[in-house]
């Protein structure tokens, strides 16, 4: 890579970064507002994907490949967080539906 970036590309990258920042702001808004737990988890999941996209854009912006590894690692880890939240939510729903849970705990 010559390291030279045409004016059009740098303009595009700045525009893309601005759009991503707006997306981040909207997602945070939903995390704060979200009436139910599910809304918040959906927004947090999206936040992870947006962060991967942001790091990839930053790789382009800085013309340095090292950042790409961070994007891959984040894509791997964000997924597990979402799965953990979803499992917790399902467990809580199951507990709410089982009113005699305390009786069961006494037995076991």
């Amino acid at each position: 890579m010559s390291g030279e970036i045409s004016p059009f590309l740098s303009w595009c990258l700045v525009l893309a970064l601005i759009m991503l920042f707006m997306a981040f702001a909207l997602t945070v808004l939903r995390v704060l507002r979200g009436p139910t737990k599910g809304d918040r988890i959906v927004a947090i999941d999206l936040f992870g994907v947006l962060a991967v996209a942001f790091i990839a854009l930053f790789t382009l912006y800085q013309s340095r490949i090292v950042f790409l590894d961070a994007a891959i690692a984040l894509a791997l880890v964000a997924f597990f967080g979402t799965v953990a939240y979803a499992r917790l939510m399902e467990k809580q729903a199951a507990e709410k539906l089982a009113p005699t849970r305390e009786a069961e705990n006494e037995h076991g």
Binding site: F8, W11, L20, A23, L50
Partner: peptide, 26 residues
């Protein structure tokens, strides 16, 4: 090279646009 960089720029803006649409949808 100009065309190549223009293509990259358009893809980046398109990707950011869909990210923004996702956030707007949320």
């Amino acid at each position: 090279e100009h065309l190549h960089q223009a293509l990259v720029g358009l893809l980046a803006v398109g990707g950011a646009f869909f990210c923004l649409v996702a956030a707007l949808g949320v």
